[in-house]
Simulated assay, not measured.
Amino acid sequence: MDHATTMRRTYELISAGDVAGFGDLVADDFVEHEDNPGFAPDKAGTLDFFRAMTGAFPDLRMTVEDLIADGDKAVARVRLTGTHRGEFMGIPTTGASGDIQLIDIMRFDADGRVCEHWGVADMLSLMQQLGLVPDAAPA
């Protein structure tokens, strides 16, 4: 199975706002290892998270900049961009744009579906770009 293609497809579907299509690529027993407060670390919670993201950032785009696949895992460096046009996790709309980096690891089951995810996102940078946290003073 071509896990690199499946991983790229997850980002394409989310970027298109097709959270249900993304869900088709996710195993029913999926486990989310990234902490997304307020969302269950399972398939349903992850789909809810991306519905909230695409609602808050309707122009959200996830662009794969690097992707490495080996065995049952794939790792990607992804650029996430979007404009904050709706409430997200209690944060009122700012109208500001964000542009951050993500690192994602996905593990695939025997059917080729994503069954586990680990991720790191530069949320501090996003909060600074949205004007919610001041930029650090130069050293």
Rank of each mutant, 00 (worst) to 15 (best):
A4M: 13
E87A: 14
G71R: 06
G82T: 08
D109M: 02
I68G: 00
D135G: 15
R107H: 13
A137N: 12
F39Y: 13
M89L: 03
R61V: 04
M7F: 15
R51F: 00
R113A: 02
Q129I: 11
M123C: 03
M89H: 05
M127I: 06
A40S: 03
D72H: 14
P37T: 13
D99K: 08
D109N: 14
D70W: 10
E34H: 09
D122Y: 08
R8D: 13
Q101W: 12
A96D: 08
D109Y: 07
R77N: 02
G119C: 04
Y11D: 07
F22Y: 15
Q129A: 06
Y11P: 00
L130Y: 11
D29N: 07
E34R: 08
T54V: 09
D99S: 10
H3C: 13
A27E: 05
A137R: 15
G38Q: 13
P134F: 11
Q101P: 01
D135H: 15
R79L: 03
D72S: 11
V31R: 06
R51I: 01
L60S: 02
G38M: 11
L67Q: 05
D70E: 15
A27F: 04
G98W: 01
A74Q: 04
D35G: 01
A74D: 07
R61N: 01
G82H: 02
V133A: 07
V133N: 14
T46E: 12
R113L: 11
M1V: 13
K43V: 00
E87F: 05
L80P: 00
F50E: 09
D18H: 12
D122P: 06
T6N: 06
L130C: 14
V64H: 04
T63M: 02
D111T: 10
I91M: 14
T10R: 13
M7C: 14
G45R: 03
G55L: 04
V75Y: 15
R8N: 13
R107F: 06
V26F: 01
A56V: 08
T46G: 00
A56I: 02
M53C: 07
M7W: 04
T5S: 15
P92K: 08
L67R: 05
H3Q: 13
V120Q: 14
D135M: 15
A139L: 11
T83Y: 04
G21V: 02
L13S: 07
F57I: 08
D42K: 00
T93W: 05
M7Q: 15
M7S: 12
I105P: 01
T5L: 11
R8G: 10
D29V: 06
V75K: 03
